[in-house]
Amino acid sequence: MMGQKEELMGKLAEAVVEMDIAAVEAKCHEALEAGIPAFEAITDGLSAGMKKVGELWNNMEIFMPEVMGSVDAYYAGLKILKPEIKQNEKTSYLATVVMGTIWGDIHSVGKDVAIPVFEGENFKVIDLGLDVPVEKYIEAIKEHQADFVGLGTYMSETFLHVKDCVEEFKKAGIRDQVFVICGGPAVDSDFAKEMGADDAWNDAWEAVAGMKKLIAQHG
């Protein structure tokens, strides 16, 4: 069974890398029929594939169109596997991340890439969507006891909203309970820190490394 499982998870991961949605869907169904727990199929198959995509991206062997193709394949598999996760399955996470595109901004590409990358590194992600008001961030941070709040911003003018968010987090008494991180092509790490955030990245894989570093430093 172990050899069969490893082979099947390897093929599922490969299908994600190859952007082969039909193969991903077939391997997900095959995994469930073989008795592989859905959560394990996600982590050892889908997420492992996205981790490989990250390695290829960092080595400049693939580019954004290929990344987005793999993201689509990942979500196709997730649609099959996620409803099959049983309550008693092991679902321990490194940290919980509440994230969304900041208000005034309706771009989604970066967030859609970041979510499977974060999940592939064992972060639990709560997706708040687009054009997210600060009140919704605060509500979600409290509800999910989040460790990180991710503020997605793709325009310079919406990047400035980070300062407003941090101030509202302070007023709500939650700033010291959560790491505030920013993502998107408009972000700058130094400026984000000046506005009160903990850090910022414009690359999902760099963000993972940075988030793990924050956990290690403050854990």
Rank of each mutant, 00 (worst) to 15 (best):
A207V: 03
N202V: 02
V134E: 11
Q217S: 13
Y93T: 15
E84W: 06
R175N: 07
A186M: 01
E168H: 07
V109E: 05
K136V: 07
E168K: 14
V109D: 06
G150P: 05
W57C: 01
M155L: 13
S47K: 07
V117K: 00
L12E: 02
G173H: 05
A15R: 00
Q145Y: 13
V178Y: 04
L214V: 01
V24I: 11
T91E: 12
L151W: 01
K86L: 11
Y75R: 05
I138S: 04
E40M: 06
I42A: 02
M19N: 14
M195W: 05
C28A: 05
V180A: 08
D20N: 14
D131E: 12
G129R: 06
Y75L: 09
P37Y: 03
Q145T: 14
V208C: 03
A192H: 05
G3T: 09
E167R: 08
A13K: 00
K171L: 10
K170N: 03
W103F: 15
G110M: 00
I126E: 04
G152H: 06
F148E: 05
M2W: 12
F118A: 09
K51N: 14
T43C: 06
A204E: 02
D127I: 07
E84A: 15
S108L: 13
S156E: 15
M50G: 09
F169C: 03
M9H: 02
P83A: 13
A192G: 06
T153Q: 06
N88W: 12
M60K: 15
A76Y: 03
F159Y: 04
F148L: 08
L81P: 08
I36K: 04
V134S: 10
E18A: 11
W201N: 06
P133C: 05
E25K: 15
K79N: 14
V187F: 01
K111T: 00
G45N: 07
E143R: 14
S189N: 14
K212L: 08
I215W: 01
L130M: 09
I215E: 02
P83H: 11
A200P: 01
E25R: 14
K111D: 00
T101E: 02
D199Y: 05
D203M: 02
E89S: 10
V113Q: 00
D127S: 09
I126F: 06
Y154S: 13
S108W: 11
D190V: 13
S108G: 12
M1G: 15
V166H: 00
H144F: 11
N58P: 12
E89F: 15
K213D: 13
V149E: 02
D147K: 03
A197Q: 01
Q145R: 15
I42C: 02
P83K: 13
L78Q: 13
I62R: 02
A95H: 04
P185F: 00
D199S: 12
K163I: 06
D176H: 06
D127M: 09
S92C: 07
I62C: 07
E194Q: 13
M9Y: 03
A22V: 09
I36S: 03
A41H: 01
K136E: 14
V16Y: 03
A76E: 08
E143N: 12
E168S: 06
V208A: 02
V98C: 05
I21D: 08
S70C: 12
I42P: 00
A216D: 08
K90Q: 14
A197S: 05
F118M: 14
D131M: 09
L94F: 11
L94H: 09
E61R: 11
T153R: 04
E61A: 12
V67Q: 01
K90G: 14
M2H: 12
A197N: 02
A186W: 00
